[in-house]
Design a protein around this nucleic acid. Structure first.
Lengths: 224, 224
DNA sequence: ACCTGAACACCGTTCAAGT
DNA sequence: ACCTGAACACCGTTCAAGT
């Protein structure tokens, strides 16, 4: 075996990186960006790294752990500095939450991960921390703030799951029309629905998100 | 072919029902109750009905449609009559929402379906209708009520997904401990988290649910 | 210690062919 | 029209065997 053996083989396949947890997460993030989480399978990822799927399990416990790592990477896009931007504390908190929402709307499949796993990555903690700081600045009681931050992020996450999933589904339009038909056909069987009528499905997603955010803040300020 | 041919074959296999959408949904519900949604696959369901998986596609578009049908069956457990029970409108709305939560907590996998598909089944509509009626009775503006009912059910659904998923996951404890460690180790890097400390993870799920519900109602009453 | 091929135990959905 | 077997195109994870 000559000493030049390894360099030569590197020159033959210059794209093959050494296997490591970092390299795996980076390659996974690249596939996520270009093809979506659905196409990011262990086999596909291993293929990209010129190895077999089994080799990945040396560095990653399972798919869920990999997804959690990718989600925290995604949340790096949310700038906690928004908490120190212009406007009053409500506006700044909204800017932060909107940035968090945007990140998840871009990857609805990862939003699902955010709902299912307990996150504790540095970027997630940075978002929680910044939001908490603003709630306290706004005069929300510490215990209310602690519980409210969870609720605000839960609503943002669940909304991203909801809308993102529908955007991906081929049957989403048919489902929406079924609901529209049910609501406009509401009569004595559903008096409450009949009473509010079109209001139930009114408003843009953006308007409803902002309204929900204001409701949550008002609620946090008025609930012991 | 003798006239007694069919009865005889029925006696030979008395458990084989005629294939129909209804029979399929009923058999699916039985598997769901006894083994959970994870084990309810098209192949498994077909096996139970003494047929091949392909035959199911005559009556059901795909797994998602089947899941939506099962979810509406599950919501039959939520009694809209709770809206007419004792107590003031808040108590009755809470009873209704708690019943909805309980149903979803019992089947977290179906709660995930509730988040991802637009529901329009009769039992879902009955819950929405009853909740709307109570909000209007409580003096919430019609538009606020229309949007708030969505938000209240979204929070209940997302909470069921969150807790149910964690109960199912083998790594849930490790994840929770990672978060506990991160929160109690918070220092200057996360001043907001350090400020509230243990409050972030305090309270039972039941206490937090009830608090979130009150916050949502207070918010609905204080948001135009 | 790290890496691998092959295997295990499955999936949802489609489709040509039968009745 | 309804039903079927077989196929298509895949999965995540484990494990004995190699280096």
């Amino acid at each position: 075996v000559s000493p030049s053996n390894q360099p030569v083989s590197r020159r033959e396949r210059p794209s093959k990186p050494a296997l490591s947890r970092d390299a795996i997460v980076r390659a996974a993030a690249a596939i996520l960006r270009s093809e979506g989480l659905e196409r990011l399978t262990m086999r596909r990822l291993a293929h990209e790294l010129d190895t077999g799927a089994a080799s990945l399990y040396v560095y990653v416990r399972d798919t869920q752990e990999l997804h959690a790592a990718l989600l925290d990477e995604l949340l790096a896009e949310v700038d906690p500095g928004l908490a120190a931007g212009p406007g009053d504390w409500r506006d700044r908190l909204w800017a932060l939450v909107a940035a968090y929402s945007d990140a998840l709307y871009a990857q609805p499949a990862l939003a699902r991960v955010a709902l299912v796993t307990r996150l504790s990555g540095p970027h997630y903690l940075a978002v929680v921390d910044a939001a908490l700081g603003l709630l306290l600045e706004g005069g929300v009681e510490p215990r209310s703030a602690a519980w409210a931050v969870d609720l605000v992020l839960l609503v943002a996450t669940a909304s991203a799951v909801e809308h993102g999933s529908r955007a991906e589904m081929p049957t989403a339009d048919a489902q929406h029309e079924a609901l529209v038909a049910a609501v406009s056909g509401a009569d004595d069987r559903y008096p409450g629905i009949a009473a509010v009528g079109d209001l139930l499905l009114s408003g843009t997603p953006a308007a409803r998100s902002r309204w929900a955010f204001d409701l949550l803040l008002n609620g946090a300020l008025h609930t012991a």
